[in-house]
Design a protein around this nucleic acid. Sequence first.
DNA 1: ATGAAAGCGCTAACAC
DNA 2: GTGTTAGCGCTTTCAT
Lengths: 334, 334
Amino acid sequence: MANILDVAVHAGVSRTTVSRVINDNDRVDDETRNKVLKSMKELGYRPSRLAQSLRKQKTGMIAVLVSRVSNPVNSILLQGIEDEAAKHGYNVILCNTENDAHKELKYLKMSQDQQVDGIIMTGIRNDYELVQSFEQYGPIVMISQYTEHDIFPAVTVDNFAAAYTATKHLVKLGHRKIGMVSGKRQSMILRDREAGFRKALSDSNIPLIEEWVKETTGFTIMNGKRYVDELFLAEERPTAVFAANDELAVGVIQGVKERGLTVPRDMAVVGFDGQFICTVIEPHLTTMAQPIEQLGSLGMSLLVQKLRGEMIHTQRIVLKTELIIRNSCGAKGM
Amino acid sequence: MANILDVAVHAGVSRTTVSRVINDNDRVDDETRNKVLKSMKELGYRPSRLAQSLRKQKTGMIAVLVSRVSNPVNSILLQGIEDEAAKHGYNVILCNTENDAHKELKYLKMSQDQQVDGIIMTGIRNDYELVQSFEQYGPIVMISQYTEHDIFPAVTVDNFAAAYTATKHLVKLGHRKIGMVSGKRQSMILRDREAGFRKALSDSNIPLIEEWVKETTGFTIMNGKRYVDELFLAEERPTAVFAANDELAVGVIQGVKERGLTVPRDMAVVGFDGQFICTVIEPHLTTMAQPIEQLGSLGMSLLVQKLRGEMIHTQRIVLKTELIIRNSCGAKGM
DNA sequence: ATGAAAGCGCTAACAC
DNA sequence: GTGTTAGCGCTTTCAT
């Protein structure tokens, strides 16, 4: 591969001039420029981004940490992120943390070693004290999740309000025995969703039965089913369930159906996220939809702003959620 | 940030020695090594991968080109790829080509500029002549897809045989009016699937009705529904459909159900891929499952081999598919 | 408008 | 076993 010196010699100018042509922010005589351009073309020259990066101390790389890409929500988030990154000339390094604190740290250090220009995190598994120093690894923006005291700028939805509304929907339909199935409680947004759920019940003077409120190991259909299994161990069951995510909701529906019962008649279910799975399950899932791809693209553009050194006035950008009413609660159009 | 010279000075040795400690493949006196290690720790030194890359002409980066990450199959592929990459110390750059020839080329050039160590492609949109010179951008391995004349080593399944088996399954159930809905025909594996489908019919002396064999713009539920719409325009319809992918199959099922008809009674459906969506749709989808995550990890390890300069004896690694019989064909256990 | 020279941070010959 | 030196390919003062 031809390098900048080859081009310079070929065009009969100095490397500096060639560099000026490449970066074209400096004044170069039109004639010289054309000469250089011609040489570059003839030699098939392409500047080494490695060398540029080393010199400029900018790589044009963004590390994106997700639990697993294969998680549907994460993959959509990533879609939004990569699209937006490409628009600004950034490349995305994919990092699967597997929700593991060590891997999270490993990728953070890699980001520093690699001198990525920025880091996007979609969750955090390390402890608060450690997290406070995370920006030593690079400028960070959070998407979907956020931290206590808003250590990093974040793009999220109002999970409390969304959960509140979703739960209220069940209340309005007349339910007074309502349960909730969630993922790992340690994440801020799941705490918010649970808090919203609890507030909606107390505001409605509905007693909260702790046995009906369960944490699970994660957002899977299987965990939704298991929740139903546990529910059926007891004498009394809720007539409605708020699931903290669509997959859990699907699991609940399947669990109920497997017992020969009917959704929503025997059990109403409302989900969270609004992915495509909602209209595959029967009955179609009523859900609190969040604009996932937009969370990704907006988060990325927030990071771009930050990298440009523009003041970030917003510590948190909150996007709108929307309750999409389908058939899993028995309330078409209400 | 401390650099290698800082460490050298601090430890009272030369940069070379520090470098030797970092890469520890060279003999260094134990005492010296400890001195250096101590200095590194005290200064919080981490070697710049940028500088290392420039010097070694190796970046430890792999570019992965997919149409869109948000496509479920792609995201699982990527999961397998990134996992395996991490095991070998490689990082993955995510590239969404949107099935666009220009973007494909853009990312390929970026790969070259960035001096990635290798490239994984999961599809190709450019013309054969151009593709032949693609390795100028870096060492390439293909996953899932492959090219004519096997230009690049590839990890795939036998799509012809798989489609043949899937179709034969419908035949064995007594169907003689069978249609097929596919994605873009330009891809090799879709051609194979269609060829397998056609062969299965002709081997069974079943007439092929061209009106029932349709190409669509891509693997979406909507396109599956549209296929059913077209089917219902005609007097006569197939009693069974082979869908080239699970999403299309789900669309077909939904389309049939929306007309008040029943799957599998009025229309049997078999899919392809074997993702989780199969057990969400009602009835559960009989499908030709391929080991998607394994395709990814195996493809990545093939690339690693290639980068190590090991002879690649296999031009194509073919993984097993498996027909998973559920309820969309009315043949539990047959 | 152009060039000379220094240097980003590291590794690899080669010498001792 | 350790150090000297050159150089990976580029950008950026500072001159002219």
